[in-house]
Simulated scan of single mutants.
Amino acid sequence: MLELRNAGHDVLYIAEFAASLSDVDVMALASREGRLLLTADKDFGELVFRRNQVVPGLILLRIDPGNNELVRARLLEAVDRFGQGLFGRYVVIDEIRLRSRPL
């Protein structure tokens, strides 16, 4: 997520300061601080849509994490395309397309 920081975005990386937080606690933190939640963990989608957990916005990366260049390019493409419109949306980023729906 260094690329996002370098692009001037305010990024909080959970593993840097609170790796032991549960998924629900991570969502609560994102909600309290008004942050988008970026993850590769599909469980967050279930928490939002099946268990009605609240988050300002959710971005699910469905790209091999070992492919750093593609992850970076697709993520920056999504930020450029949606901008502030990422808030209030569930966006899935894969190798080919960006899918988006309201939360």
Rank of each mutant, 00 (worst) to 15 (best):
L21F: 15
R101N: 00
R51H: 13
L98G: 11
F87T: 09
M27W: 10
A7T: 10
S22N: 02
G57Q: 03
I63R: 04
R62D: 13
E16L: 11
L37P: 14
A78K: 02
V48L: 06
L38E: 11
V11W: 09
P56G: 11
G85H: 05
D80I: 09
L29H: 12
R62H: 03
S100D: 10
G34Y: 11
A7G: 07
L75F: 08
I96A: 13
S31C: 07
A78S: 03
I63T: 11
P56M: 07
F44E: 01
V48H: 00
A15G: 10
V48S: 01
G57A: 03
A7N: 13
R81A: 07
G85T: 05
L36N: 03
M27S: 11
D94R: 00
R89Y: 01
L37Y: 04
R74G: 07
I93T: 01
A28E: 15
P56R: 13
G85E: 10
A18K: 08
F44S: 06
V71Y: 03
A19D: 14
L75D: 01
L47W: 04
G45H: 11
V11E: 07
V54G: 01
I63L: 11
I14F: 08
M1K: 06
L76D: 02
M1T: 14
E16M: 07
K42R: 14
D64C: 06
G83I: 02
V55H: 00
V54H: 05
D10I: 02
M27R: 07
F82I: 02
A7Q: 14
I14A: 08
R101Q: 12
S20V: 02
S22V: 04
A28K: 14
R51A: 10
F87G: 09
L37M: 09
V11A: 09
S31G: 09
V91T: 14
V55M: 00
Q84H: 10
Y90K: 02
Q84I: 02
G45L: 06
S31Q: 11
G34C: 00
L29N: 03
H9Y: 15
V24W: 05
L4R: 05
F49L: 11
R89T: 06
N68Y: 05
L60G: 04
S31P: 00
A30K: 05
L47K: 13
M27V: 04
A73K: 15
G8A: 01
I63N: 07
Q84T: 09
T39G: 09
A40L: 14
